[in-house]
Design a protein around this nucleic acid. Sequence first.
DNA 1: GATCGATCTTGACATCGTCTAGATCACACT
DNA 2: AGTGTGATCTAGACGATGTCAAGATCGATC
Lengths: 205, 205
Amino acid sequence: MPEHAYHHGDLASALLKAAEEELALHGIEAFSLRAVAKRAGVSHGAPAHHFKDAKGLLTTLAARGYERLVEAQVSRQREADEDPTAQCIASGLGYLDFARANPELFRLMFSSDKPRRSQDDFARSAGTAFANLVGDIRNKLGSDPYEDPVAMKQVVASWSIVHGLADLLISGRLDAPLAVVGTEAERDEIMSEIMLRVLEGPGRA
Amino acid sequence: MPEHAYHHGDLASALLKAAEEELALHGIEAFSLRAVAKRAGVSHGAPAHHFKDAKGLLTTLAARGYERLVEAQVSRQREADEDPTAQCIASGLGYLDFARANPELFRLMFSSDKPRRSQDDFARSAGTAFANLVGDIRNKLGSDPYEDPVAMKQVVASWSIVHGLADLLISGRLDAPLAVVGTEAERDEIMSEIMLRVLEGPGRA
DNA sequence: GATCGATCTTGACATCGTCTAGATCACACT
DNA sequence: AGTGTGATCTAGACGATGTCAAGATCGATC
């Protein structure tokens, strides 16, 4: 394999890899397409042939992110009890795992308008991630959220508590409040208990 | 008052006003300092004398945002029952009001690293907002979160559910799930019930 | 073995944030 | 009252950015 093949062979994935490294290093707000090209060892105009523009590249990167988000959730679910409630909690913990491991990618996926949400790969990946959440809630409640408004409200509530925890966590805003927490297991325990409050549904009060 | 005074008189606040308009129009990711200067009717170099750089301007803008966030919360609290739990709910609804009314400013405040969080005005304003939350929880639980870990956990949980709802709301991700919701009162009712689950603390399950 | 399309390079352009030097004005001091 | 001094704003420059257009290079196919 020549050191500098004119045709890279698999520049698309090389660019995605370089883009993620750049993203993790400098964040979405300092993201530079030219820096990505340089990191991949190609000229600044090369990416245009594989991704229409910077948004195209970032959209696909975000789409891959949703796939890995689901993987992180499923990974937790495999280790958890098969009880529907435990599965929901595990899914939430996986969501937090992913956010903590890939904070800038998480921001790109949820708090940026660079990705084109209507683009095929993004819509599909984000769609399956949401479908999984809906499925978990259906398993727990025994009713389809698309038919039962109460179940859909549970979807909204569950997503919101997990997403809120994730977003505040990666922005460092829970550092001080959670300063006491020592081990990771302790943190998981706290997060689980908080998510459980929402999962238990409307209180009797 | 001359049409074009060489010395503007109050350029600092004129720039903040122009910056907020630009922010609301194009979002933080397409924010341009030169566009702000043009909107304020001054040269592109003028802002530098009042704010060190773009981050300086955006930091102060975010700081003002926190003050208005608190105002929105207090406004809801005044209309609510004086019961501590109702006050917490009202504060959350004010948080949602603010996010929906100023989505891009909200993003700047919580999901951007442009603001310098250590800058005086930002730290102070954000600190007050957080202190209010801590105060509301203390009123409800009767114990100081800074001394009682259980109360601090309640702070984390309450902030997270409200913030998660707000962030997902302004990104449009709850549009489909909440499509059924008709009136604003209905939406408030749903949001209140969800927040109440977290406020009621650990379930008995 | 020539051709054609896909891939990549190179250079150009407008726009961006920031720096510097200079113009202009308000205000205080003599 | 006149002067100058500092604060305020303008104007031009620089490097960096995303995107576009034109050209060079390679692989595959006929």
